[in-house]
């Protein structure tokens, strides 16, 4: 079985600043990491391989430096990796991103015998964009069922049985035939740390294959900015509102004043 894991390289900090002059993101000096959710997707892929056999293939779309993220995936134990990189892919929204990923998976699937089942695993969402859209859009383009927000996973020959969590008070167990796409929650597992051998293999034995728009036979109107239906009109730092009245005096004074104000505001 082929297990495709889609990963994204993201800025490794929770706070990204924007340059007020140019209104663009300041990316310099910020380390890049594998999107944390995607590490759980990799871990699940590796676990499935260990228990049932198969091949784990990591795919990422991004700039050439995203090779680093794929090297890390290889060092965790992923068998093969593909970086979809081309200037034409830049500026993609989720629709164009999912299309590019779908082209790569379809190309790889051509190598398969027809009846072979496959599984696509994604992280639920990326910490930078936070859209959670690429997984379902990819499933749609591949024409396979999707199960999102997956907490638990079981493979039974050509079927998967998973726990899907949409709300705190309920778990739904869903069964579907392969091929399928799942997007996983962080609670599903604990991603392994690469060992020395893994790291050495990632650089000496394994490859990151670079594919551009020609390799994917991509129609340039369907990828990157051109293939995107949405556009970023502007980005800005959120304006914080509030009257900022700092109360003064002793604790007694301040709490008196607070309660009086809250009563006047009719909130208590």
């Amino acid at each position: 079985m082929k297990i495709f894991v889609c990963i994204k390289q993201v800025p490794g900090v929770s706070e990204v600043k924007i340059d007020p002059k140019t209104n663009t993101l300041i990316r310099s000096g910020i380390p890049s990491i594998i999107n944390p959710h995607d590490k759980h997707a990799i871990e699940l892929g590796l676990t499935i391989k260990e228990n049932h056999g198969g091949e784990v293939i990591a795919i990422s779309m991004g700039p050439p430096q995203a090779e680093q993220a794929l090297r890390e995936a290889l060092s965790m134990g992923v068998d093969k990796s593909y970086l979809l990189t081309d200037r034409a892919f830049a500026g993609a929204d989720t629709l164009a991103t999912s299309h590019t990923l779908a082209l790569a998976i379809k190309k790889l699937l051509k190598e398969l015998k027809k009846a072979d089942p496959y599984l696509v695993i994604c992280g639920t969402q990326a910490i930078d964009g936070d859209t959670a859209q690429v997984g379902p859009e990819l499933a749609e383009e591949l024409g396979i069922p999707q199960i999102t927000y997956v907490l638990n996973f079981e493979l039974k020959v050509d079927r998967i049985i998973v726990e899907r969590v949409f709300r705190a008070e309920e778990i739904i167990i869903i069964e579907t035939k392969l091929p399928a796409l799942i997007s996983v929650l962080k609670e599903i597992n604990n991603p392994r740390k690469p060992g020395i051998k893994g790291i050495v293999d990632a650089y000496e034995k394994k490859k990151v294959v670079f594919w551009n728009s020609e390799d994917l036979k991509a129609d340039k109107t369907e990828v990157g900015l051109n293939g995107s239906m949405t556009e970023v009109w502007k980005i800005f730092i959120p304006v914080r509102k509030g009257e900022h009245i700092k109360l003064t005096g002793t604790i007694d004074d301040m709490t008196n004043e607070l309660v009086k104000n809250l009563k006047e505001d009719k909130v208590i």
Binding site: T131, Q133, R167, M229
Partner: peptide
């Protein structure tokens, strides 16, 4: 933008080739 909405909306958008903005 609940988990349910975020499950079906992207797929609907893709099938319609329509723009979708999340959350």
């Amino acid at each position: 933008a609940t988990p349910t909405g975020r499950d079906f909306a992207p797929r609907v958008a893709k099938r319609l080739n329509a723009g979708l903005t999340a959350d």
